[in-house]
Nucleic acid binder design. Sequence first.
DNA 1: CATAAACTACACTGTACAGTGTACATATCT
DNA 2: AGATATGTACACTGTACAGTGTAGTTTATG
Lengths: 206, 206
Amino acid sequence: MPSFPATSQRLTDRKRSAIIEAAIDEFRLSGYETTSMDRIAARAGVSKRTVYNHFPSKEVLFAEILHHLWQAISGGEELAYRADRPLRDQLLELIAQKFRLLNDEAFVSLARVAIAAGIHSPERAHDMVARMSEREEGLTVWIRAAAAAGRLKTNDPVFASHQLQGLIKGFAFWPQITLAQPPLDAAAQKQVAETAVDMFLAYYAL
Amino acid sequence: MPSFPATSQRLTDRKRSAIIEAAIDEFRLSGYETTSMDRIAARAGVSKRTVYNHFPSKEVLFAEILHHLWQAISGGEELAYRADRPLRDQLLELIAQKFRLLNDEAFVSLARVAIAAGIHSPERAHDMVARMSEREEGLTVWIRAAAAAGRLKTNDPVFASHQLQGLIKGFAFWPQITLAQPPLDAAAQKQVAETAVDMFLAYYAL
DNA sequence: CATAAACTACACTGTACAGTGTACATATCT
DNA sequence: AGATATGTACACTGTACAGTGTAGTTTATG
């Protein structure tokens, strides 16, 4: 029976976690270029050599972190279209789900780091945003179903979905990413969500 | 009578312009951190020392460029609300004006550079986007006037204006900035503009 | 043409940083 | 307790880059 030190696993695992956490903080704070491996090591309370024993290069460490943050936010339970409930209620629930993501510290971190790093690295940006837009599929699927059921008048669900998201993200995503603004408070979220949905339905509902 | 070399002004002016142009290209291509003064000098066809004779530091050169690009896009002729024309036409014209800005290479460059540089420098980001949002005032003013004239039902013109812009920027700004996507073609612009305006009016028009 | 201003080549300083090699220490496992 | 895996301190290489100093050349101007 291993008498491991109270809180957690093997030393090497704790070190590894500390490095990843420190790296997330540093990259988030300073971006990829201006973050040094020495600072990451220092913040992690770990020797620089240990960082390199775990991760062969800064690039790899960075990729690991993107992967790590990605895991942290992968919990999207698709909401299916239902004929027996008002469109408005269903849309509000879909938006609420989106807000949970947008309020998620991990998600915003990921987005900030990814966009900051990717803005001058097309292939990485492409990969990143491609994966992010997968998370936007749910809404499109719902709209397509509602249209097929004859409750919405659109033959371009992807476009309509982007519109609705534009109405949300303009308030609750881009300002937070580019200006590091705090997430919307509950009242603002309510206003943004309800007005967006009502505007959307005013145009698309049959 | 000075026999100046055909095309333009004094040598020093041409050098200065060459430096600024080269710096715009480089910063746009690689961001602030990863662009070196040596590369700028090389691209400008100028000795490094000359760069420093014109601009005391990289910081200053960068600021100069932001200022320079800012000048290049400052030609916004505010469109005033008019009681004698349909709302839809006026809004479409406002949007068209916005698209002219969004299609402007200089504007997109500025935005990309500014956002990339500012994403980890809150004060600069703040300053930058504050100035950018001045350019969005026109739409807000128009909406306020239309509401005062009893043609739109909103008591929050700023919010409404942001909504309409969200419907545009989600297609024609953010993808271009963060993914370096090409500007929308004419057909797409038409679709985005018309659908946005129609959706907006479906909700707000009296 | 003389003079001042601007440009150039180039060598140089200082710093920051990615990444490595090593000798020694500490933890983990059997 | 002894063997093995990990971590640490630290010195070091090589590179990239901001910024400077200088001596000499080119360009404009009275």
